[in-house]
Design a protein around this nucleic acid. Structure first.
Lengths: 199, 199
DNA sequence: TAATTATACAACAAAGTGTTTATTAGTTTC
DNA sequence: GAAACTAATAAACACTTTGTTGTATAATTA
């Protein structure tokens, strides 16, 4: 990221890893509201002051972790973005994201599917809105009867919500299969291009 | 609710109203994580101890407020549940919910659309899952190609997500119009009954 | 090796939590 | 209206959490 980044001090990496792991484990035991800097430091076997050297407070720490998540996913989306498939049938984006989440499911089951931790879902939703918006824009002026913004709201939250439920139910489908179903359900095919049932 | 409920002491109603209002107003000024019992009591002009007379802590208070929201919506859904329309085209449920939310938008814009307050969305999602599940069950064994649970995950979160975005954007469409669009986007019509594009 | 930087440790004031006890004020019942 | 009841207030309490400071120690890098 930073141009002149001398590679990070291994102690910093270690400490942040310890903090992140401690947080993830605590989330599986107690509710977010009960998690304190004290407990995190204790569980991470670091001094409490060290926490403040890295993060302003717990919400800030979560924000930074969400940054990392979005960066990782964005990197995956950048690598090999276009398939030979036409855009309206291209679920390669979905497959990649789902595979990445499945590979790190220990991590993301806690961060995305635990109730009451909206930060990560919010960020993922924003990324999805952007992706879907650009996909819809690229299709040019379609004659779809439903307003664009509603379609974007609808599909983005449907995708995120389905992923969360899939995680909460311990991923009963393969990433590829789920991606196919999502693309079947998404109103991106030509059948929606003619106005339907307007009244 | 309770059979032998002598009607509630007006002081209790007043106090809970003050607490709720104070909470809503604080949410518009500072982040949820920064809201304390101290501040709520101060803003509500009640003694801090009085808060603990009614709620265990802030998460408990939010849970009780969510109970109330779900009860209200359920009551609305119970009143005049079935239209003459066939189930797969019945958006009367959606219209009712949207109208109710629009009427109390000052309240629900904060509780549903403010980032980082997932309790209410979680509860509303659960209600929506139940509603949609029963709707899908009633349709009997359909030959829809997408697994039922995925459809339920998809549609429920799409509905809730769209409502949240609609609130965040200050309700640019009427409840009736939005309900129509949602029903257009939901894969409940017969077009989904034949397997499509299975491979 | 020397300079730099991260972490540990101890201590601090300020704020928040949750509870108890006694007192005041409002509501209901007869 | 008086008596009985219940809610809210007020002061105090031990305790935890927060965010910060100064100093010492250990690890990393140049």
């Amino acid at each position: 990221m930073s141009i002149t980044s001398k590679r990070t001090d291994p102690r910093v990496i270690r400490t942040r890893q310890l903090i992140g792991d401690a947080f993830i484990h605590l989330l599986q035991e107690i509710e977010l509201e009960k998690i304190t800097v004290n407990r995190i430091a204790q569980r991470a076997t670091i001094n409490r002051v060290t926490f403040y050297l890295h993060y302003r407070d717990i919400p800030d720490m979560m924000e930074r972790m969400a940054d990392k998540m979005i960066n990782d996913i964005n990197a995956i989306l950048q690598n090999a973005p276009n398939q030979s498939l036409p855009i309206e049938n291209d679920w390669s984006m979905l497959v990649k994201i789902l595979e990445y989440i499945a590979e790190n499911s220990n991590f993301y089951k806690v961060l995305l599917a635990t109730k009451r931790i909206p930060v990560f879902n919010e960020r993922l939703l924003k990324l999805m809105v952007d992706e879907i918006t650009s996909r819809i824009e690229e299709r040019g002026a379609s004659s779809m009867s439903v307003p664009k913004d509603i379609v974007i709201w609808y599909v983005s939250s449907a995708f995120i919500g389905t992923i969360v439920s899939w995680l909460r139910n311990d991923m009963p489908y393969t990433p590829l299969f789920l991606a196919k179903q999502l693309s079947l359900l998404a109103p991106f095919t030509s059948k929606y291009d003619q106005p339907i049932d307007q009244e």
